[in-house]
Amino acid sequence: MSEAVIELHEVTRQYDEGPPALRKLTLTVNRGDSVAILGPSGSGKSTLLNLIAGLDRPTSGTVTVAGAEVHTLGEAAAARYRRSHIGMVFQFFNLLDDLTVLDNVLLPAQLAGVRGGEARSRAARLLTTLGIDRHSGAYPGRLSGGERQRVAVARALINQPALLLADEPTGALDTASGIEVQNLLKELHAGGQTILMVTHDMALAEACATRTIHLVDGQVSADTLTDSRS
């Protein structure tokens, strides 16, 4: 029986007086899934990602990720939850330009209290696996977009998260760099990483996702199993 990593039950998120961003959304993602969330602007994709990451709380309903009841967490507990369970990759990398590649990757481990030797060993393995070990002493501004996104992925994986969240991971990249990141996400999923990505990039979804979920007006309009092995 598959183990659920993400469980949302009857989740609604209401902002002000307008229509809800999400309305009574129920969703389960199992360990080892690679899921693409698709939908037009305003469909609730970013809200969904923020709720799963513990950056926002539902108006009603429950959000459970890797056994953590995320909807109950205060700010400090939510930060600890993200360090322990979640890796996040953003459209614009969010790297610190005044830190080297290695120090960017090490930062989440240091914040989580991982011992220095273990953190550096993990970072070295990740940088080698992702093909950017030669850039460990460089600063992000010297790297291509694809290389910077690889650094961001290494940073997201340093604490060995149960779940990798990716918010438009190819959105700021040229075609060649986008394909590079697409292949990287495929490799990570093949290695067993659970991935949830929000994207407008149909090529990325078709190449990387084993399941695509379409949101419209805060509700699931389609939930389709796919084959991303080709």
Rank of each mutant, 00 (worst) to 15 (best):
residue 174 D to I: 07
residue 174 D to S: 11
residue 175 T to C: 09
residue 175 T to Y: 13
residue 176 A to G: 04
residue 176 A to L: 12
residue 176 A to D: 11
residue 176 A to R: 13
residue 176 A to E: 13
residue 177 S to Q: 05
residue 177 S to D: 13
residue 177 S to P: 06
residue 177 S to F: 05
residue 177 S to K: 05
residue 177 S to R: 06
residue 177 S to H: 07
residue 178 G to L: 09
residue 178 G to M: 12
residue 179 I to R: 13
residue 179 I to C: 06
residue 179 I to S: 10
residue 180 E to R: 06
residue 180 E to T: 11
residue 180 E to F: 03
residue 181 V to Q: 06
residue 181 V to K: 04
residue 181 V to W: 01
residue 181 V to R: 05
residue 181 V to M: 06
residue 182 Q to R: 15
residue 182 Q to D: 13
residue 183 N to R: 07
residue 183 N to W: 00
residue 183 N to D: 10
residue 183 N to G: 11
residue 184 L to M: 04
residue 184 L to T: 02
residue 185 L to S: 02
residue 185 L to Y: 02
residue 185 L to I: 00
residue 185 L to E: 01
residue 185 L to G: 00
residue 186 K to E: 01
residue 186 K to A: 05
residue 187 E to I: 00
residue 187 E to P: 01
residue 188 L to T: 02
residue 188 L to M: 05
residue 188 L to E: 03
residue 189 H to G: 00
residue 190 A to P: 04
residue 190 A to M: 05
residue 190 A to H: 06
residue 190 A to T: 08
residue 191 G to Q: 11
residue 191 G to F: 05
residue 191 G to V: 09
residue 192 G to L: 01
residue 192 G to V: 01
residue 193 Q to T: 06
residue 193 Q to P: 05
residue 193 Q to C: 04
residue 193 Q to M: 06
residue 194 T to S: 10
residue 194 T to H: 08
residue 194 T to N: 06
residue 194 T to F: 05
residue 194 T to K: 04
residue 194 T to L: 06
residue 194 T to D: 11
residue 194 T to V: 10
residue 195 I to G: 02
residue 195 I to N: 00
residue 195 I to D: 04
residue 195 I to S: 02
residue 195 I to W: 01
residue 195 I to R: 00
residue 196 L to G: 14
residue 197 M to R: 09
residue 197 M to F: 14
residue 198 V to L: 12
residue 198 V to E: 15
residue 198 V to Q: 12
residue 198 V to K: 12
residue 199 T to N: 14
residue 199 T to L: 14
residue 200 H to G: 15
residue 200 H to P: 15
residue 200 H to D: 11
residue 201 D to S: 12
residue 201 D to C: 13
residue 202 M to E: 12
residue 203 A to S: 08
residue 203 A to K: 09
residue 203 A to C: 03
residue 203 A to L: 07
residue 203 A to D: 06
residue 204 L to Q: 04
residue 204 L to S: 05
residue 205 A to E: 08
residue 205 A to L: 08
residue 206 E to M: 07
residue 206 E to Y: 04
residue 207 A to C: 07
residue 207 A to Q: 06
residue 207 A to I: 02
residue 208 C to V: 08
residue 208 C to I: 00
residue 209 A to F: 07
residue 209 A to N: 14
residue 209 A to W: 05
residue 210 T to Y: 01
residue 210 T to R: 10
residue 210 T to F: 03
residue 211 R to H: 01
residue 211 R to G: 02
residue 211 R to K: 00
residue 211 R to S: 03
residue 211 R to C: 02
residue 212 T to F: 06
residue 212 T to L: 15
residue 212 T to I: 12
residue 212 T to G: 11
residue 213 I to T: 08
residue 213 I to V: 15
residue 213 I to Y: 03
residue 213 I to G: 06
residue 213 I to K: 04
residue 214 H to F: 12
residue 214 H to W: 10
residue 215 L to I: 14
residue 215 L to P: 10
residue 215 L to V: 09
residue 215 L to Y: 10
residue 216 V to L: 14
residue 216 V to C: 13
residue 216 V to D: 15
residue 216 V to G: 13
residue 217 D to N: 14
residue 218 G to Q: 14
residue 219 Q to P: 05
residue 220 V to N: 07
residue 220 V to W: 07
residue 220 V to M: 08
residue 220 V to G: 10
residue 221 S to G: 12
residue 221 S to T: 09
residue 222 A to H: 11
residue 222 A to N: 10
residue 222 A to Y: 07
residue 222 A to V: 08
